[in-house]
């Protein structure tokens, strides 16, 4: 059983690093802007930011092929951007406008894209895990080589339905990658206050599912682990568990008094382990110039500002929209 933590430092050519840099920076700037719009009262309801965790989804998307599926939790904006959904449509959904992915009727946690095989944000902790296995079942049934990335948190990893799903997934050899984004907190409850187990991936061994723990602040380490996982799944060997060690810099949601951790703890990780800074450093080592990176920063700011403008200008849905999209014609 694969049980080793990927310790070898990975390397990548400059072009590849540039892509990860752009993709991660887009998520971070998008989320900062969303936080700002929330503060201005333009976004209502729940809003959970992904800042700090960018390398997880960017690393895994780099090993996805056409037709692979992804499903995640309410902390979902990063996953949508990383799989190629349009920033304008995501931001406009946050502000509840007709130009949003769910015509402004879903909000932060309820967006979907058939084109990009994105099966949603889900607000019920743990509930997306069996759904992810169901998606993988459809690929097994059809006999194709696609896999489903099923993302959930360290808090969700203590849910009973996760283990029922593990059991069936291995029994039927479903091509599903269970991605535990271990950001060390479930709202205000640290992992240490929620379980005596020292790791989450190891629980898979009880069901004969292999897995490993990965440094989630290093996009290349995530990519390397992702490559192993998809290889296992596409070969018909069944599910794989990736426990990705990451950290969320912001509060659980927008109204989180953050009394459960110290400012220093957050600051230390930002300064020493930030995923974007790591790639930035690697890029400079690989010969990129400050001017080149500054130009990228500006391009991304432009994309995000344009998304915010679109999200403010797009009209609110007409009240008659209350009566649409309730049933689907088969």
């Amino acid at each position: 059983m694969a049980a080793r933590r990927a310790t070898k430092k990975q390397a990548a050519p400059k072009e590849e690093l540039l892509k990860y840099y752009k993709d991660m920076l887009l998520i971070r700037r998008f989320e900062e802007k969303a936080g700002q719009l929330y503060g201005m009262g333009l976004i209502g309801g729940f809003c959970h930011l992904y800042i700090g965790q960018e390398a997880v989804v960017v690393g895994l998307e780099s090993v996805a092929i056409e037709g692979d599926k992804r499903i995640t939790t309410y902390r979902d904006h990063g996953h949508m951007l990383a799989c190629g959904m349009d920033a304008n449509g995501v931001m406009a959904e946050l502000t509840g406008r007709i130009g949003g992915y769910s015509k402004g009727k879903g909000g932060s946690m309820h967006m979907f894209s058939k084109e990009r095989d994105f099966y949603g944000g889900h607000g019920i902790v743990g509930a997306n895990v069996p759904l992810g296995a169901g998606l993988a079942f459809s690929d097994m049934y059809k006999g194709n080589k696609n896999v489903t990335f099923t993302y959930f948190g360290d808090g969700a990893a203590n849910q009973g339905q996760v283990y029922e799903t593990y059991n069936m997934a291995e029994l039927w050899k479903l091509p599903v990658i269970f991605v535990i984004e271990n950001n060390q907190y479930a709202m205000g409850t640290s992992v240490k206050r929620a379980t005596k187990s020292s790791s989450f991936w190891e629980r898979g061994t009880a069901f004969s599912i292999p897995g490993e723990q990965v440094d989630g602040m290093d996009v290349l380490a995530v990519r390397a682990a992702g490559q192993k996982a998809v290889k296992h799944c596409r070969a018909g060997k069944g599910p794989y568990i990736l426990e990705i060690m990451t950290y969320r810099y912001r509060g659980h949601s927008m109204s989180d008094p953050a009394k459960y951790r110290t400012r220093d703890e957050v600051q230390k990780i930002r300064e020493e382990r930030d995923a974007i800074e790591q790639v930035r450093g690697r890029l400079l080592d690989a010969g990129a110039t400050e001017a080149e990176l500054k130009a990228i920063d500006k391009d991304i700011k432009d994309v995000v500002n344009a998304a915010a403008e679109f999200a403010k200008e797009s009209p609110e849905p007409d009240p008659s929209e209350l009566w649409t999209d309730i049933t689907v014609s088969a």
Binding site: G35, G39, Y249, G251, S255, D256, P257, A258, R263, R270
Partner: peptide, 17 residues
């Protein structure tokens, strides 16, 4: 991302970045 101020509401004190 730097914390600029602390804002208090009836619910809680929160940091503003």
């Amino acid at each position: 991302g730097d914390i600029m101020a602390e804002i208090e509401t009836d619910k809680a004190t929160m940091e503003f970045e």
